[in-house]
């Protein structure tokens, strides 16, 4: 395998140092492990699809308009953070901050809507202890929500670091890794809406 150092020019700042390359690769290993973690939660949810203990089913409770808005918020935030990395590679600090700021705002709106959604469901009488179906629902979607929360905190810290230190191999690598995490969360959400909200409810409408 060719090392990045064999490429003469145009190396993105996050790959400039060998340490950065290794850390980015390490993060891909972490993402692969996360993929497996979420697959276990999906497997649990899909097995418990019909185990509602004669209680409410997903079809009766899920609030589709809110879920669809959440999906588009997260899709857009994934796009804006990819533009942030595009600008990072063009070394335009201000534009990186603007796009990453938009990403954070979209992420926070997503999280707010998800909390509101959970509150509505609990008001309607389905909690984590209602049935096996609802336990696995809250665990799966809640784990994703916890990841988004962590992603928002993490990206804010990385951005503060970025504002103070400017574009250098370290800050670029940190921002790039945080954006990889953000894209990953969006990819997981695609499967959440497909597996949880559509297969677990919408399909019966």
């Amino acid at each position: 395998m060719k090392s990045i150092n064999d490429y003469p020019a145009n190396i993105p700042p996050e790959y400039e140092e060998e340490e950065g390359q290794i850390k980015i690769f390490g993060f891909w290993i972490f993402l692969a492990a996360e993929l497996v973690l979420f697959s276990c939660l999906f497997a649990t949810y899909l097995v418990y699809l019909d185990r509602t203990a004669s209680g409410p089913t997903g079809t009766e409770i899920f609030e589709y308009p809110g879920v669809i808005i959440q999906t588009f918020l997260l899709l857009t935030s994934s796009f804006t953070s990819s533009i942030g990395i595009f600008e990072l590679r063009r070394k335009n600090k201000l534009r990186v901050l603007i796009w990453m700021g938009i990403t954070l705002l979209l992420g926070i709106s997503f999280l707010g809507m998800e909390i509101k959604e959970f509150a509505t469901y609990i008001e309607e009488g389905v909690s984590i202890s209602t049935s096996a179906f609802w336990s696995s629902f809250y665990i799966l979607v809640g784990t994703h929500g916890a990841h988004v929360t962590f992603g928002i905190i993490w990206m804010s810290i990385v951005l503060i670091h970025f504002i103070r230190k400017g574009i250098n191999p370290t800050t670029s690598r940190k921002l790039f890794v945080a954006s990889l995490y953000w894209h990953f969360l969006d990819a997981v959400w695609i499967f959440v809406i497909t597996g949880v909200y559509l297969i677990g409810g919408g399909i019966n409408l």
């Binding site: 690769f25 692969a32 993929l35 276990c40 899909l46």
Partner: peptide, 24 residues
């Protein structure tokens, strides 16, 4: 030419598919 990261992600995806499909 980061074939390693493609390998890692493919491996993770394979395990994920086996877990979900196998469990069901």
């Amino acid at each position: 030419e980061k074939s390693f990261q493609i390998a890692v992600v493919s491996y993770g995806a394979t395990v994920a598919i086996i877990v979900v499909a196998g469990t069901i």
